[in-house]
Write a protein that binds this DNA or RNA. Structure first.
Length: 269
DNA sequence: AGTATAACCTGTCTGC
DNA sequence: TGCAGACAGGTTATAC
């Protein structure tokens, strides 16, 4: 479910609530969450230490404590709540009386534990591509990623190239850039690369600003509020509706078992 | 190196 | 009403 804008909003809220606080207790309710350690190890590593900050890399959240860092991915249905949910997998209790609950209906989310100094050099963080909102992500940088003959939509979903885009925001970014999702990535002109680059940044910035996209009540900010960006989507989940640019019909296609939404008139094949 | 498929999970919606 | 199948915001192991 959560892509970069959702994770960024969650990160900000968790950071505001808990950064600088002492972790007084930690409960693993579902051991399958843990990818590289046992419940006893993570408790031993984190309890009684201070959370320095909550950072984000791609769709991962990094809870950076003094010695160790907890790396969390929400996958399809994970979320963080400030009250107990009915699908709680992990509980963090901070002094004084700040509780955070990781809730995850489909139980696909993951957590890794690392020594803080090693996090960036270990999987899964070390293999992530460029941050699309960083200074390093320029139209030229995008062009250097578009060197293989793959469909551009699939390339944008590849987290080892660009970290943070998911199924919603790739469709939105390609629409804004007026690039067809099935285009061979190598075939994009300089002008199209600039448009796509702008489309990616504009989409992500606006989605962050509007606190992400909530469809079926799954995504919530930790305070319990749904996002508002579902009201501003241009093509995603709008098959059969009018293109906001030209008024013709929005289409849905399948690429690698996943839906892409586009306007065939505005986005040339 | 690329893709395709299944797998991991649980729920909702659609059509018969 | 029941039931099968498709589908859902993500990633990864395995097989070509």
């Amino acid at each position: 479910m959560p892509e970069l804008p959702e994770v960024e909003n969650i990160r900000r809220r968790l950071n505001d609530r808990a950064a600088g606080r002492l972790l007084s207790d930690l409960h693993v309710r579902d051991e399958r969450l843990l990818q590289n350690c046992a419940p006893g190890e993570i408790r031993e590593a984190l309890v009684d230490s201070c959370l320095n900050e909550v950072e984000r890399r791609g769709k991962y959240m990094l809870f950076t404590f003094e010695e160790h860092t907890l790396v969390n991915h929400l996958r399809m249905s994970g979320r963080w709540l400030e009250e107990e949910g009915d699908r709680t997998r992990l509980v963090l209790r901070f002094e004084p009386n700040v509780n955070l609950f990781m809730d995850d209906l489909r139980r696909l989310g993951t957590a890794h534990l690392f020594e803080t100094e090693n996090v960036m050099d270990r999987p899964p963080i070390d293999g992530l591509g460029v941050e699309p909102l960083s200074e390093g992500f320029t139209p030229e940088a995008l062009g250097q990623l578009c060197t293989t003959g793959r469909e551009v939509k699939r390339l944008l979903l590849d987290q080892s190239r660009i970290a943070g885009l998911g199924n919603i925001y790739t469709s939105e970014a390609l629409f804004r850039g007026r690039v067809h999702p099935e285009r061979d990535a190598r075939s994009l002109s300089k002008e199209e690369l600039v448009r796509l680059h702008d489309g990616i940044r504009e989409t992500l910035r606006k989605a962050i600003q509007h606190e992400g996209t909530s469809f079926d009540g799954l995504y919530r900010t930790p305070s319990g509020q749904p996002g508002r960006f579902q009201h501003r989507l241009l093509v995603y989940d709008r098959e059969g509706e009018d293109c906001p640019r030209c008024g013709r019909e929005i289409h849905r296609i399948k690429q690698g078992q996943r839906s892409s939404f586009l306007c065939p008139n505005c986005q040339e094949g």
